[in-house]
Nucleic acid binder design. Sequence first.
RNA 1: CCGGGGAUGGCGGAGUGGUCAAUCGCAUCUGACUGUAAAUCAGACGUCCAAGGGACUACGGAGGUUCGAAUCCUUCUCCCCGGA
Length: 384
Amino acid sequence: MSFIKPKLETRHGDIFLPAFMPDATYGFIRCISFKDAETVGVSEIVTTTLHLEQKIGSKFIKDFGGIHKYLNWSRPIFSDSGGWQVFSLINAKNNPRNLHRLSKVGATFINPINGTSSLITPETSIQIQLNIGSDVLTVLDNPVHVNSSLAEQKRSVEINTDWARRAKKYFDNNKDSETLKISCVVQGGDNFELRKRSALELTEIGFDVYNFGGLPLNWSDQLWRVRQQKEVKTTFFREMLEYVSSILPVGTIKYAMGVGKPVDIAFCVDVGWQIFDTVLPTRNARHGLLFVSEGQGDDNFEYLSKSKKRFAYDHLHLKSARYIKDDRPVDENCDCECCRSVSRAYLRHLIRMKEPSGLRLATIHNLRFYIKWMEKISDQIGND
RNA sequence: CCGGGGAUGGCGGAGUGGUCAAUCGCAUCUGACUGUAAAUCAGACGUCCAAGGGACUACGGAGGUUCGAAUCCUUCUCCCCGGA
């Protein structure tokens, strides 16, 4: 019995699902080239409206000939809307409150360097993304703190739906190609009812892709700020991811934004999510934490699928002194440039020295791990 | 030889009577990282222990003053600067 892989069609090619996209927030994947990304097996990437607009300018990109030409990347590009980025800045350490804010009007961002303020509305966010030339756009969304009052959380979902409606309308009136896709973002924090309401309202409007927004973590009443200052353990919110997936209509394409650890991705695929992006492989690579096959590292992680298949891997804390003389490759089972060319001992040295060539190799390895992980999951979960 | 200035924990460098096992930076060790303002951040960092509490040894060496010294005095050793 043959199985046809589900896919999302874009004007820059099909995205076969499930898929993992590295983040190219500023128009690049940190520490590696797009040539590297292609070699590693990356097929699609995500970039960000707010950052591109601020650092490059969407008009410039449009005049240049579009983001694909600018980056010299001919495969699909997703773009994030900017809502999450402002939300993150509001809550970031070292960023006083009330500078950046999310209001009914839109997302206000203050550049801390020159103090200039920019307002992104549902309409301007879409326009910027159209200018950029993204293949899958995202509506401006309105994330909310899980520790906000119920009233605030309700309000946030209302605004989120309102913005999605406005963005969709603007998109329909201004899109320059019928093959462009648009995604919306289900919000509602850790409240099941609000999540349901958000999902249903967005479904009613109608989008090409439905995203899970907010941090997919179970906070257990812990404040985010507290978590950043102390060490508060958070766990992946499996129940909520499974629930929201079940609310969304069968056949829709579902994208779990910011997910996640390999085990979390495996779980999400098991409950119906198909697209993922996270900073973990690239950032952790720079910080010396490498994802390796089982038995190759320090800590072991595993996911047991609903059909009782086991997926496991290890974390390798390469900066640790115990690898100072280790002449083995990072992962003996890996075929990436990093594992074929340098020893753990030497890569450890490069990373500790923050040497770009070492950060590049580590990033290549972790992305290769994620790509292969997705292939493994794709072959074995839900395809029986 | 004379005059002046110094010697502080792996390194650099604060501190000039008690709140000093000693600010801070670097290095080191450990840990975090989930739609990237994260090549970042947090903790540890004299020794030992029944270990978030306690004991011991410490600011070049040796004495001394004092209830109490990294801090004041004497002396020794070494280093730097100037003069013979």
